[in-house]
Design a protein around this nucleic acid. Structure first.
Lengths: 197, 197
DNA sequence: TGATACCTAACGACCGGTCGGTAAATTCGC
DNA sequence: GCGAATTTACCGACCGGTCGTTAGGTATCA
């Protein structure tokens, strides 16, 4: 049964989130999982292998979720809204994994690093396509696609660093705030006369 | 002369930025500084002390720069623009230190952690005051001050993770993009109305 | 019986940090 | 003005401890 393998991964996510990858030892992970540290190596090849597993599944699920969220949505503004919402909700709902995915890339081997960055680039390119299309159609202002895509993604991603699931706002309420902020930011100049400089 | 002390700090910033705090050894720092690792301890009490020095000076300079940038600016929109610009420029110009300040807080002792977080909170509160005032005056939409302040700061801060000083855009050009994006996001499609009278 | 899932024990490497010592520069007593 | 005392800035050697990892053994169960 892959029961312990799952337990180890879950414990690992908790610890990497709380203490960081380098500050977490195999002993910590073993202790949290209720086994001896040598037994970790029956399930995973190395500490880095564990990190890579976490990041790979997170990135894959992230992209899958986005594609599902966009599948039935028409119109560029609505599609961008859906994309932002998908991104925010995923990051808040799977806060720990996403925090790790953004903070611990340096723990990977060069090869695994490339693999994760490739997945991230593919994900980003979906947003960049949306931005480009919105700009072409004149729905969004003539924005810098590269910079604005980074802006949108890091903005929502940052939620994973401060979000408190017991806090004042629900995931949906936070998604609303980001959605409106971003869409307004993208439409800039479309509503108002330019402010004096 | 405090020459070597400065050299060590500079080397340290480079290494912490490139490899991360935990992955950087005292030997690395010593090697980069051209001395033996024991000599590091003549200038700094510990590895953590080095990190704390870096973060303290960065946070202090950050706040000082913001206050200077706001000193002579009138009007809430212009003040927010100035604040965003100050924040972006500081983060891009001192990219490495700011990256460390956002990534390596976990390396601090509990006491030093509190000290840095306190500085960060004070800095954030300046932005929150601007947001609150802008909302009160009706210049900005009725936004959630807490969430939007995090949004603005993390947005600009993120620039320090991807900015390439040899890249396509200058610091000022990037600041322009952020400034317009954020102000538009805060106004959320509002037409500008003469405030009050 | 043999695969599965764990264990105990131990490995070498490396870590942050300390120690005693020292050459050179600076300060001080006279 | 000059020798003595002290401080500055560094070094090489080494410490206890922890790290990720491995070898080899053992209980369970089909």
């Amino acid at each position: 049964m892959a029961e312990m393998k799952t337990t180890i991964k879950t414990v690992c996510i908790d610890l990497f989130f709380k203490k960081g990858y380098f500050a977490t030892s195999i002993s910590d992970i073993a202790g949290g999982s209720g086994i001896q540290k040598a037994s970790i190596y029956y399930h995973y090849a190395s500490k880095e292998d564990l990190l890579f597993h976490i990041l790979t599944s997170t990135m894959d699920d992230l992209t899958t979720t986005l594609k599902q969220g966009l599948a039935a949505v028409q119109g560029i503004e609505q599609r961008m809204r859906a994309a932002v919402r998908s991104h925010v909700c995923f990051h808040l709902e799977r806060q720990k994994e996403n925090f790790i995915a953004n903070a611990e890339l340096r723990g990977l081997t060069a090869e695994h690093y490339r693999s994760i960055v490739k997945k991230r680039d593919e994900y980003e390119s979906i947003f960049q396509d949306l931005l480009r299309q919105g700009t072409d159609e004149g729905v969004f202002a003539d924005v810098d696609v590269k910079i604005l895509s980074y802006a949108i993604l890091t903005l929502c991603t940052a939620g994973a660093t401060w979000y408190n699931s017991n806090g004042r706002l629900t995931v949906d309420e936070i998604a609303d705030i980001y959605e409106n902020f971003i869409i307004s930011g993208l439409k800039q100049g479309r509503f108002e006369r330019p402010a004096g400089h």
